[in-house]
Computed example of a mutant assay.
Amino acid sequence: MPTLKDPQYRAFARREVHRRQGGRCLYCHREFTEAGELAMTLEHLKAKMKGGTDHLKNLAAACWHCNQHRGKQMNTTKLLKEAKMAKRAADARSEEKV
């Protein structure tokens, strides 16, 4: 299967995803520009680190601003989940001592 590291596949994927979404961001629905915060970026719907692939079905077009915001949001969510799990583990340990 081709990956986004291949320049020809990356160009094809960008064109196809842009066409599929009508030239608009998946999240804010604004039209893409050539540069700046509304420049098009490719977004993995399921992150590669969570098992996602470079297949067209897993790719979406997002403006740079939304792509960056989503990354920060995912990191915050991950940190909150880890904190909750650590608290539960600490609570379970303290209950065992009683």
Rank of each mutant, 00 (worst) to 15 (best):
A39M: 15
A39Q: 15
A39C: 14
A39Y: 10
M40L: 14
M40P: 04
M40D: 09
T41Q: 12
T41N: 14
T41E: 15
T41H: 14
L42T: 07
L42C: 08
L42N: 04
E43P: 13
E43F: 13
E43G: 12
E43Y: 14
H44G: 01
L45P: 06
L45G: 11
K46Y: 07
K46D: 07
A47H: 13
A47E: 13
A47K: 09
K48A: 10
M49T: 15
M49D: 15
M49S: 15
K50Q: 15
K50S: 14
G51L: 03
G51A: 08
G51Y: 04
G52N: 10
G52V: 11
G52P: 12
G52E: 11
T53Q: 08
T53H: 03
T53E: 07
D54A: 02
D54Y: 07
D54E: 03
D54C: 00
H55C: 10
H55D: 15
H55I: 03
H55G: 09
L56N: 06
L56P: 02
L56A: 02
L56H: 04
K57Q: 11
K57A: 13
K57C: 10
K57D: 15
K57T: 13
K57N: 15
K57S: 14
N58R: 00
N58L: 02
N58M: 04
N58F: 05
N58H: 02
N58I: 00
L59F: 04
L59Y: 06
L59V: 01
L59Q: 05
L59D: 07
A61L: 05
A62K: 03
A62Q: 05
A62M: 01
C63F: 10
C63Q: 07
C63V: 04
W64A: 12
W64R: 11
W64P: 00
W64K: 10
W64V: 07
H65M: 13
H65R: 15
H65V: 09
H65F: 11
H65L: 11
H65E: 12
C66W: 08
C66K: 09
C66N: 06
C66F: 09
C66Y: 07
N67W: 01
N67T: 00
N67Y: 00
Q68L: 09
Q68E: 10
H69G: 04
H69C: 11
R70F: 04
G71D: 02
G71W: 02
G71T: 03
K72T: 10
K72D: 09
K72R: 14
K72H: 10
K72E: 13
K72L: 13
Q73K: 06
M74H: 13
N75K: 15
N75C: 04
N75M: 13
N75G: 09
T76E: 12
T77S: 08
T77M: 10
T77L: 11
K78V: 01
K78F: 09
L79G: 03
L79Q: 13
L79H: 03
L79N: 07
L79M: 11
L79V: 04
L80R: 10
K81M: 02
K81L: 01
K81I: 01
K81E: 06
E82W: 04
A83H: 03
A83D: 04
A83I: 01
K84P: 01
K84M: 10
M85L: 12
M85V: 05
M85P: 00
M85K: 10
M85H: 08
M85D: 13
A86D: 00
A86P: 00
A86E: 00
A86G: 00
K87E: 06
R88K: 12
A89K: 08
A89F: 03
A89P: 00
A89T: 09
A89R: 03
